[in-house]
Structures are given as structure tokens and as C-alpha cells.
Design a protein around this nucleic acid. Structure first.
Length: 662
RNA sequence: GCUGGCGUAGCUCAACUGGCAGAGCACCUGUUUUGUAAACAGGUGGUUGGGGGUUCGAGUCCCCCCGCUAGCUCCA
């Protein structure tokens, strides 16, 4: 290796410039992140990156992945390494074990302990550039066939770099990996690490490839930051909607209907109030609601163009008559072409709405026509992807389709965006970001049509001054879309709303309307949902509020508890009074002690616990304890009724300010 | 669908290498009549997810299903 006098390492330069600090893990120079030990121009401009910055933490995690791979190969000789990147919340490394066995939790502890030794030794990382041949020889000699594949995939014009870190106890004294870098100055800069889980993962993410063993871990500059992260993970577990759904009796599942939730009275109440809320906004925004069939002749989905893309996702209800009639007949070219499978359970509402649009001659005066549908949908999701309420096989969306003219497109998209922000604010989801998903590889329509559609959506965002990010290849097969993402109370990102522009389906159904010119014109169709799947939104919302539903949604708004059984009569009077105001109330007048009754009510996260004892009965008062505001003391029943009635109203959104990205 | 893990009372979980299926909570009954997060006693409750096999003997070992779960892949 040659050293040129005009080049120095950033580490040296920072010292010369008086900028040196222990927690600097790399520098930004000319738009690139560089190690402290990789030489740069002696007069280069350098911005130090500290371990606690996002970019610095990523560098540190990538280094932690190397240290983990080192530890694994020490403890499990013969294990091959593949790739090991930093990810949002930590890092992972995929391994191939000669015996194909997975790592156990006990193994993770051993590996973590070994990592601590390597980190404690504070040995340097350094970069080395080699020729393709040298790299090839090196990894071939080590028997690392996955690394050879990675090497072969690196474009010919790119430099090949290796990273080594000092690895005490190894005969060669270092551990080496094919890697672009950058890395922290020494293993000691890694700070705090924790290995979290092990899981199978396909080589290169392709399910036809061999399954590798992936170990997930996370790393932070110090123990405090790690502890905070682990606390958040714990918090997420505590909020898990499947756990809360069971505890609060919101829903249940049964193996005779896998992936299909049963909403118990508590859950069904919330679910229906969500629908009612959206419905009330539909009135304000000029939507009309329809009811459509559940089972369709498959020709509907053939016409809509869904069959080739969707065939695996359909449920096929059939009849004894059909089965008898077609018993023993061969399958057609597609597995679902069997005549006994003539009917499908609808997986989406749009084709029904197209049939409705085409039912009679339409005029341009009727447009835009906004058709809302809370129809139940069924999709045969693969067994491994089902997850509580968040991913189910039977669900409903706050779905609507807008048939409009090209000219109305922008106004409709803007109005929808407004509606969407009204709804999100009502659910206290205020951190929203917008993405524009562009044409996927598998798609219908010509490139010219896609150009037109993509430009239209982009124009809406630009005109409305909404910040957005483009997602190439993420659009639906029939058109581009906007995605609306929110951050929940513990910082997780969820996609909720979407609006998708579609000129394919009106084409497929031959839809047209008579324009002012007396001629026929094809309408544009907008597929749009604010909350998306209501089941999934319910899951997200349960976790967002940690089961503490606001009064307007809560299954029980006030739990009345008596001090002794003697107040049963007064409790019944209070219950009737609140019930007459349309409030949802339970009474616990049993023989438990007061403390136990309060505990039970709090575990159910009811917004109010109302204590009724001798004093209250005599004075016609109630002693109120608020879930969110604490002890409110004694008040006349009428005062409590007024207070809770005001909170029990569904939010009535005004105009929500223009969307803001975080 | 793939790779691991798991499935025991309504819930949360025990049951050493194969050897009498248990606890707490919930529920029911009784006692207690309670003042802001768990009163006391007794009782009911199980073909250990389903089917097959090995064995004198299976919750435990083997095989096949089903479901759940962590990820991977997928999410039109």
C-alpha cells in the first residue's frame, strides 16, 4: 500500500484542527461518510459524526454486525457469513451453519458474551483496498462461498474493500469481511449491544434460495440509550393489540375460522362507532353509500382484470349442486378454472361499483359520483402472514370510489386529502407523511397512460404544497397511488390511507358518461380509503392508545361501583340516569371490597370509575375518578352527567390545516 | 408457502431423564358489608389442539394434520 504525503486520515486531521473527541465515530466529507482511519485529502472539509447521531449510530451498528459475525465464527467453526447490514432499529447478520441448525437463545447469550470480549479489547477497525483477484483468493481460501457470490455481484468499476478488526485470540489476530464500510475507529466504540432474536431468512430474500440463520441485535453508543430502546420494545409488547384484545374482551379467534376475527361486544361497539364516524363525514363530503353482494360470478373479476393478479387470493364458495354436476371433470388451464369454482367471494368492492355506474346512461352533471361501501371482503392470505387484527382474511374497508372527469381529478384528490386529515386528527394521529407510489413491473396499460396518471397525482401534491416522497415500483397494477403514513404514540410508522388513480377499470367495464358536447367520455376512477382496513386500523389504534379509548369510543364510559351492597339501589338510579343520556355504563354492586372493584374497573381501562357510598346516596352525588385526570372528588350527579356527555360526542372536525410532513 | 419455536382448565403458567394432570386468577356457593389497585373458606372445571404409532405405561418420544407465534416471502 502506498501512502501519499498529501493525504491524511480524518482522525489525524481532526486532531490537528482541534476537533478530536472520543465519541466521533466517522466524518462526513464531500457527501460521503468516511472512517477516521481511511486517508482523505489533507485539506478536505470534514464534518464529525458522533455516535449518538442517527448516521453515527448506523455506523456503530454495522460494526457491531461484524463483531457478531466474528463471535459466531469463533463459537461455531465452519459457519459461513453472508451479509450483515445495519437496519432502522439495530442490525442483523445472516449465517449459514454447516449442520443447518438454528441458533438457540442460549447460543445468543454465548455470542453476546463473546462480543463483549471483542468490544472490551478496543481493537482498531481498518480498511484495505484489494484487487478483485486478491479478494477472490482470500474468500475462496476461507471457504466463504456466499461472500464469493457477493463479490461477483459488485459492479466491475467499483473498488473492492475489506474491513478487518483486531480480534484477540484468533491465530491471525484479525477478523476480515468484504465490506464497503464505513466503520467505527475501534471495537470499543460500539458501546452497548444486545442480541434480540434469531429467525430464518432466505439467501438474497428469495424463497427459492436456501434458508439462512439470521440473528437480530441492536447496538447503541451507551447503556442508557440501549435501555431506553429495550423499554420501548417492552412498551410495544404491553400494547400488543392481540394481548389487549383478549384482556379487554374486544375480539377472539377460533381455529375453525383462521384469520377471521370475531368481534366481541366491546370490540364490535368500537368498530361500529368507527364506521359511524366515517359515515358522518361522508355526509359532509358528498358521498353516497351503497350495499353490494358478497358472492360473484367469476366473470366479474375476469372483466375487472383482477383474475390474473389475484387468483390465489380468492375464496371460492361452491354448492353441492355444482360439485355434483362437475365431479371428476378436469381442471382448466388455471387451477381456478374448474367449473365448480364458478363463484368467488369478493376481495374488493370496485367491480361492484363499476357495475352500478354502468347500470344506466350517466351524465357529466352527475360527476363526480362518490360511492362508499363498507362491504365485507375476503382474501385468502397465506398462512404465515396472518397477524391478529392487523392482517386478516375477512375484513372491511372504509372504501369508496370516485368516478369523475379528468378535470375533476385534482379537486377530488385535494378534497380527499382534506377529509383524510380531518379523520386522522380525530384519532389523534397528527404526524402524517405522504408517498407517491409509481408504476410497478406487473401492470396494465400503456406507458403514456402511466405518465399521465403519475403526473396528475404529483401535480395535486405540488399545488397543495404537500411534501412527499416518491416510491418507484410500488404502485397498484392498474395505476399510481398516494399513500398516507402516520406515526403512532410510540413512534412506529403505519400506512393507513390511500388514493389510487385508475383509468383501467372504467375501460375494462366500458364505462362512459355523456359530456356537455353530447358525446360519450370515459370517466376516471379513484380508489380511496382513509383508515384502510378497519380491522387493521382498529389494531393500530388499540396500540396507539394502549387500550385507553377516548370516552366517545370506549365500550364502557363509566363503571359504577358501590362501597357496599347497601348502595345497590342508588347505583341502579344513577345507572338509569346516565343510560337515559345515552351513556354506556356498568354497575358493580357485588360483595367485593371497594379496592377490588376499582382495580377491576381500572384493568378494563374504563375512562371513569364512579364510587357510590352512603355519603353519595344521601346527597345524590357521585365520587369520580378519571382514568386520565385522576381523582376528581365528589360532585352532583348532574355535573358528572354534563361532563361525560360532552366527552361522549364523536369529534366534529372543522377544516384541518394543510398536511405537514414530519 | 418456507425455517424455527409453541399448543396443558375461561386466562397466566407448572408437571426432573416417559411413571397418580397441578397452582394462582376467573367462575359458582357460603361467610364478610366493606371508602379508592386484589377479603376469607369451600366447590365446579381437562379425552393435555386432532389423528396414528412406539411402550407394561405417553402431556413428555416418533409420524401426519390443524392452529398460534418470531422472522423470511407476500400485501394486487
Amino acid at each position: 500500500m502506498t501512502s501519499q504525503p498529501a493525504r491524511k486520515t480524518p482522525g489525524e486531521l481532526l486532531k490537528e484542527r482541534g476537533q478530536h473527541a472520543e465519541d466521533i465515530v466517522a466524518v462526513r466529507s464531500g457527501g460521503r461518510i468516511v472512517d477516521l482511519h481511511t486517508p482523505v485529502d489533507a485539506n478536505a472539509e470534514l464534518t464529525p459524526i458522533r455516535a449518538s447521531e442517527a448516521a453515527g449510530t448506523q455506523v456503530l451498528r454495522h460494526s457491531a454486525a461484524h463483531v457478531m459475525a466474528d463471535a459466531v465464527q469463533r463459537l461455531f467453526p465452519g459457519t459461513q457469513v453472508t451479509i450483515g447490514p445495519a437496519i432502522d432499529s439495530g442490525f442483523y447478520y445472516d449465517f449459514s451453519r454447516p449442520d443447518g441448525k438454528p441458533f438457540s437463545d442460549a447460543d445468543l447469550e454465548l455470542i453476546e458474551a463473546e462480543m463483549r470480549k471483542i468490544i472490551g479489547s478496543k481493537k482498531p477497525f481498518y480498511r484495505e483496498e484489494v484487487s478483485r483477484e486478491q479478494a477472490h483468493q482470500l474468500f475462496e481460501g476461507m471457504g466463504e462461498k456466499f461472500k464469493l457470490e457477493v463479490l461477483d455481484a459488485i459492479p466491475g468499476n467499483e473498488a473492492i474493500s475489506l474491513y478487518r478488526h483486531g480480534s484477540p485470540g484468533r491465530p491471525e489476530g484479525t477478523w476480515v469481511d468484504l465490506c464497503e464500510g464505513p466503520h467505527v475507529p475501534t471495537t470499543g466504540h460500539i458501546g452497548a449491544v444486545k442480541l434480540l432474536s434469531v429467525a430464518g431468512a432466505y439467501w438474497r430474500g428469495d424463497e427459492r434460495n436456501p434458508m439462512l440463520q439470521r440473528i437480530y441485535g441492536t447496538a447503541f453508543p451507551d447503556e442508557k440509550a440501549l435501555k431506553e430502546h429495550l423499554r420501548l420494545l417492552e412498551e410495544a409488547r404491553a400494547r400488543d393489540h392481540r394481548k389487549l384484545g383478549k384482556e379487554l374482551e374486544l375480539m377472539m379467534f377460533h381455529e375453525w375460522a383462521p384469520g377471521m376475527p370475531f368481534l366481541l361486544p366491546n370490540g364490535a361497539g368500537i368498530y361500529n362507532r368507527l364506521i359511524e364516524f366515517v359515515r358522518s363525514l361522508y355526509f359532509d363530503y358528498g358521498y353516497e353509500e351503497v350495499v353490494t353482494p358478497q358472492v360473484f360470478d367469476r366473470r366479474l373479476f375476469e372483466t375487472s382484470g383482477h383474475i390474473p393478479n389475484f387468483i390465489d387470493g380468492l375464496y371460492y364458495p361452491t354448492t353441492l349442486e355444482l360439485m355434483k354436476e362437475h365431479a371428476g371433470k378436469p381442471l382448466g388451464p388455471g387451477p381456478a378454472d374448474h367449473p365448480a369454482l364458478a363463484f368467488g367471494l369478493k376481495p374488493m368492492n370496485c367491480p361492484s361499483h363499476c357495475l352500478m355506474f354502468g347500470q344506466r346512461r350517466r351524465s357529466y352533471r352527475e360527476l363526480p359520483w362518490r360511492v362508499a361501501d363498507f362491504g365485507r371482503l375476503h382474501r385468502f392470505e397465506r398462512a404465515g402472514v396472518i397477524h391478529g387484527l392487523a392482517r386478516v382474511r375477512s375484513f372491511c374497508q372504509d372504501d369508496a370510489h370516485i368516478f369523475c372527469t379528468q378535470e375533476q381529478l385534482e379537486g377530488e384528490t385535494a378534497a380527499f386529502t382534506q377529509l383524510l386529515f380531518d379523520v386522522y386528527r380525530a384519532f389523534d394521529l397528527t404526524n402524517v407523511s405522504v408517498k407517491l407510489a409509481l408504476r410497478p413491473e406487473k401492470r396494465m396499460g400503456t406507458d403514456a397512460e402511466w405518465d399521465h396518471a403519475e403526473n396528475a397525482l404529483e401535480r395535486v401534491l405540488v399545488n397543495a404544497n404537500v411534501p412527499f416522497e416518491k416510491l418507484p415500483g410500488e404502485g397498484a397494477f392498474y395505476g399510481p397511488k398516494l399513500e398516507f403514513h402516520v406515526l403512532d404514540a410510540i413512534g412506529r410508522d403505519w400506512q393507513l390511507g390511500t388514493i389510487q388513480l385508475d383509468s383501467q377499470m372504467p375501460e375494462s367495464f366500458g364505462l362512459d358518461y355523456i359530456g356537455a358536447d353530447g358525446g360519450g367520455h370515459r370517466p376516471v376512477m379513484l380508489h380511496r380509503a382513509v383508515l384502510g382496513s378497519l380491522e387493521r386500523f382498529f389494531a393500530i389504534y388499540i396500540e396507539h392508545v394502549a387500550g385507553k379509548f377516548p370516552v366517545w369510543l370506549a365500550p364502557v364510559q363509566a363503571a359504577l361501583v358501590t362501597v357496599s351492597e347497601k348502595q345497590a339501589e342508588y347505583a341502579e338510579r344513577v345507572r338509569r340516569e346516565l343510560h337515559a343520556h345515552g351513556l354506556r355504563v356498568t354497575v358493580d354492586a357485588g360483595s367485593d371490597k371497594l379496592g377490588a372493584k376499582i382495580r377491576n374497573a381500572r384493568l378494563m381501562r374504563h375512562p371513569y370509575v364512579v364510587v357510590l357510598g352512603e355519603k353519595e346516596a344521601e346527597a345524590s352525588t357521585v365520587s369520580v375518578r378519571s382514568r386520565d385526570a385522576g381523582e376528581l372528588g365528589s360532585m352532583p350527579l348532574s355535573a358528572f352527567t354534563a361532563r361525560i356527555s360532552a366527552e361522549a360526542l364523536a369529534p366534529k372536525p372543522g377544516k384541518t390545516p394543510a398536511p405537514v410532513s414530519q
